[in-house]
Design a protein around this nucleic acid. Structure first.
Lengths: 356, 356
DNA sequence: TCGATTTTTGTAATCGATTACATCTTGTGA
DNA sequence: TCACAAGATGTAATCGATTACAAAAATCGA
């Protein structure tokens, strides 16, 4: 019936506490935010009133007055990918410590959803933005940048002035992956990529091509399968792989889920991993420890990535640094496990000869 | 230097738009929130000014005045568990449609973190709360309930008056799991549980015991391993399992991750699944499709759970219903896959005889 | 054309805190 | 004891919107 039917407890305002303590609202406010400014005796008096009344400041009013929302918007392409969940944990650890809250912007792999979050930033509901996407969200003519809020790009380097990047060494790692496969004797490669529209994929593909070149191969020595960072992309790649008469033997997947999907599918057709095909993933998600065989992959320092990104954002929000002074690239580490091995293929020897 | 160093764009207030359009702020406000109240001509005039200036209302001011934050707090025990991520997707779909934002409260399996979110509710930063936990968060003497905000319990039935439950049929499903294993001929069972402090575990354990009784077994016919809903709980259970001389043959794990951890570990010791031991999980996460062998499990309708829970909360927040009028229990479905099978044990025949 | 009625618009109070500035206390030294 | 500085407290403006109420404008019928 009443609009407030739900409020079980009547709301206590700062004026109520002031009356109870026999002081002004200004004093109550000072006691709560800057206790050194009031006499000890008054302080105790007010705190007693606060406790008795159970007063908790209305944070919306505080926000309006102080112009700080103490909230940060985190935009993620997809929540069910454990990579983002793990990064989010790191972000959360860091922000919570500083009293900031997290508003989650889940794009669910659909770019049209980003508009909503641009508006959210534009309407000042947050003090800063963390992008786990490889691009800057837009809403028609307006961009997230128009909000003037501090933004930190994570997960993919966005080459925009004034936007610090906190990322992993995607490019170097991808390059290393190819070189590693080449060292194992592979000479035909497969690359299960992300969708090319994201910068993260551009980076990784560039690294892949560098690796191909560095190992002395050419554009003709690999096939590339494209799709989002999900299991089914790997399955689709496997379908294609199984059709090929001259199959690649060294596969790099740009995410662990795709790698796992690929392996599952090819093993169903009696293709042996790693004897027939080596697979190397990227991310180092927890699942990758539990596959059979266990997945060789690059471990991203996801939790740390989250912490560092959040830390950079905090510094920006507190004007403790200029955005151009920060760009962090965290190293990834290769976890050599069971899905990669030397080529056992019939033309292995001829390869050895040619590269030796 | 300046406090506002960051704001690239100067902020436009409703007064600026009013001046630009030559009307009062009240009229601008009406155009934006209730266009039927103004003349067409004025409407166009104002909209023109809005567009030209790029005005977007300051939502904090709106919140203060209207006393609605348009935010909902979602408390999850752990973000990296895909179960919660999937539920969150459903919640997000539903809430976004109604213009609500999500503030994420990640407990990360540490109960001491809940205090912060109680305060968040108490300070009116949200209009409602969704609990994916099996209990009501506390902060010292104060509880989430004291906020007077509408709360919906998901993931586990919380038997508190005034709190609607939107849950799955945990108890029934667990019971079915045991009966299913019994039908396959198993007579010694293992139960990999959650931690008993959560109501969700209490429910599932009750269902498990019901199943045991219904199939004609007793408390002595099963072992129970306890731990949080993570991979390593399953691994630990497996370690214990491997030590036993009279091993159970039918294992129910209260979450897929534990089931997967268990299987991985026992297979490493050449225990065959399902020939030596059958395992059945609970959740139906995507990853369970990609294990080897594929995991038999109960699929929770996670996305729907999220949607329904959010929908119930929306109705409560809009005073469209009384909390006591709602309690939803969604069914789970058994996915029979490869980790379960009939007992092939030496004493299988004697069992057949005894139950025939 | 005029008055009554309806519709549109404007004025100013309001939401609940923070904080600049003014005022009142207290403390110190002569 | 008094003047003055330093410290504590109070008064009132402020953040930026919404909205009750008042006032003005438009509409209508006679």
């Amino acid at each position: 019936m009443s609009r407030k039917g739900w409020r079980a407890v009547k709301e206590i305002r700062i004026a109520d506490v002031a009356r109870l303590a026999g002081v002004s609202t200004a004093t109550v406010s000072r006691v709560l935010s800057d206790p050194d400014k009031v006499r000890q005796k008054t302080h105790d008096l007010v705190m007693e009133a606060v406790k008795r009344s159970g007063y908790i400041p209305n944070s919306t009013a505080q926000k309006l007055r102080t112009r700080r929302t103490m909230n940060v918007l985190v935009i993620a392409p997809r929540l069910t990918n454990p990579v983002f969940a793990e990064i989010l944990r790191g972000v959360d650890d860091e922000l919570t410590q500083s009293g900031y809250g997290i508003i989650i912007g889940n794009l669910d792999n659909r770019r049209e959803r980003e508009a909503r979050y641009v508006d959210l930033a534009l309407s000042r509901q947050v003090d800063g933005v963390l992008l786990l996407t490889g691009y800057i969200p837009q809403n028609g003519a307006r961009s997230m940048r128009d909000s003037g809020l501090p933004i930190v790009a994570m997960c993919a380097a966005i080459p925009e002035e004034g936007i610090p990047n906190v990322v992993v060494q995607d490019r170097e790692a991808t390059r290393q992956a190819v070189e590693y496969l080449a060292r194992l004797g592979h000479r035909r490669f497969g690359y299960i990529s992300g969708t090319l529209s994201s910068i993260i994929e551009v980076e990784r593909f560039a690294g892949f091509q560098e690796g191909i070149a560095a190992a002395g191969f050419s554009q003709n020595d690999f096939v590339r399968w494209e799709g989002p960072f999900v299991f089914s992309t790997g399955v689709a790649a496997a379908e294609s792989f199984l059709q090929m008469k001259d199959r690649p033997t060294g596969i790099f997947a740009a995410c662990d889920e795709s790698a796992i999907g690929f392996i599952k599918r090819v093993r169903a057709e009696r293709v042996r991993v790693p004897q027939d095909v080596s697979v190397i993933g990227f991310d180092g998600i927890e699942y990758a420890d539990y596959t059979e065989p266990t997945l060789t992959t690059f471990r991203q320092p996801l939790h740390e990535l989250g912490r560092v990104g959040a830390d950079v954002l905090l510094k920006l929000m507190h004007n403790q640094m200029k955005p151009e002074h920060w760009s962090v690239r965290l190293p990834v580490t290769l976890l050599e496990r069971e899905t990669t091995g030397p080529v056992l293929h019939k033309d292995y020897k001829s390869l050895r000869r040619s590269t030796a």
